Simulated scan of single mutants.
Amino acid sequence: MTSTDVARETGLSRATVSFVLNDTPNQSIPQATRQRVLEAAARLGYTPYAPARTLRSGRSDLIVCELPDWPQSPTMAEFVDRAGEVLAEAGYTLVTHVHTDRPGGLGRLCAALAPAAVFGMRPFPPQDVEAMRRARVGVILPPPQAGSGDDLGASVWTTGIGRMQAEHLIAKGHTRIACALPDDPRVSDLSAGRAAGAAQACADAGLPAPARSPVPLDIDGAAGVVSAWRASPDAPTAVCAYNDEVALALLAGMRRLGLSAPGDLAVIGADDIPAARFAAPPLTTIALDSGDLGAHLARALLRTLDGEEQDLTLAPHGVHVVERESA
């Protein structure tokens, strides 16, 4: 259905219908006529033709969120869902684009979609920023000067979580702590950041730096890591797992060896995925309100679109320890 169909249905001129449907300012159209057009448009199922609107305004109502090439966990899904809800309330549609190593992919996407804005968790490479500028993307968040390769949410996603994990274990009396890292190269930077946060907490408490070991997501491999830890002269008594999946692998490997948490080895995860509460024993973990973080970034983006100064301060509430039985 087009505006011509609406004009035919109402018996009004195409110009009048166009003024109403586009909410054109400075037009003295009676309210009754406006209502007549809007009711006919709804009855016919009329929707604006997006390419035409983009040509008129120079940009679409789309906003692109570039996601890191991380496994798409429930935490990331919640982040995207809440960001999308906030943007939808303001009349925008969120489109996600997963980062790849292929150069120019984001620039080509922006050239095709003409989005109103693009945002992500990391500063974009200069070549991508230039491509987005050529595509007339008005708002890029974070801006190129946001940092030197650091994640926009580093204090929340990485070091903050690792520090909180270690601090919880230290408060429980543990003095020899290990970090269980994933063996997935896509999250190597993220996992290194969490391990660094745990190391900071240990250093502040006067404890040695945590041992770091990759833990495969299979029972035999996890059991092998636990065995190696226990055979070392400074065997750890507690482990900061990169996330709940790694923590669950450790618990399964421990059961294979006849060990249990927290008596033989305390384990704390991160993300508080639904399976964490059903682990044996139920998993102590760090909960991050990623939905709050997504909403926070979306609101910051909307403020920037309204011409306000960019505010990249990330201080989402709800990052806390969920204490269960494994640590």
Rank of each mutant, 00 (worst) to 15 (best):
L250C: 05
D101Q: 09
E309Y: 02
L152W: 08
R163S: 11
A266K: 05
E85T: 05
Q27P: 03
V215R: 03
L87C: 01
L288Y: 09
V139E: 02
E325P: 06
R122H: 13
G58V: 11
G206W: 10
A205V: 00
L217H: 11
R277T: 14
M121V: 10
H174M: 07
G58Y: 14
D311S: 09
Q35G: 12
R176F: 06
A198Y: 09
A279V: 00
L207C: 03
G162F: 04
T175F: 07
R53C: 02
V239M: 02
R256L: 03
S60L: 02
A275C: 07
A42Y: 00
D183F: 06
L251I: 03
G294D: 04
F79L: 12
V137S: 02
S326Q: 01
L302G: 10
S155T: 13
A7W: 02
T4F: 13
L62F: 15
N26Y: 11
M76Q: 14
S13A: 07
V215H: 04
V239D: 02
G153E: 12
D271Y: 06
P316A: 05
T175V: 15
Q310N: 08
H168G: 08
V319D: 03
H317S: 13
A196C: 10
V246K: 03
P143N: 03
V321D: 08
E323T: 14
G84P: 01
D23Y: 04
D220I: 04
R256G: 00
P125I: 07
A211H: 11
S73H: 15
Q27H: 08
R59P: 04
D69N: 09
A195W: 03
G206I: 06
E130Y: 04
G193C: 05
S155R: 15
Q35Y: 03
D23N: 14
A50P: 01
T54H: 02
V187T: 15
I273F: 13
P103L: 05
P125M: 09
T285V: 08
A111N: 05
I268S: 09
R212G: 01
L38T: 07
V139W: 05
P103Q: 10
V98A: 04
E78Q: 13
R82G: 03
Q35F: 01
D189P: 00
P143R: 05
S290Y: 10
P71F: 11
G107A: 14
H317W: 09
A50Q: 15
S290I: 10
V129K: 12
P185C: 00
R299H: 14
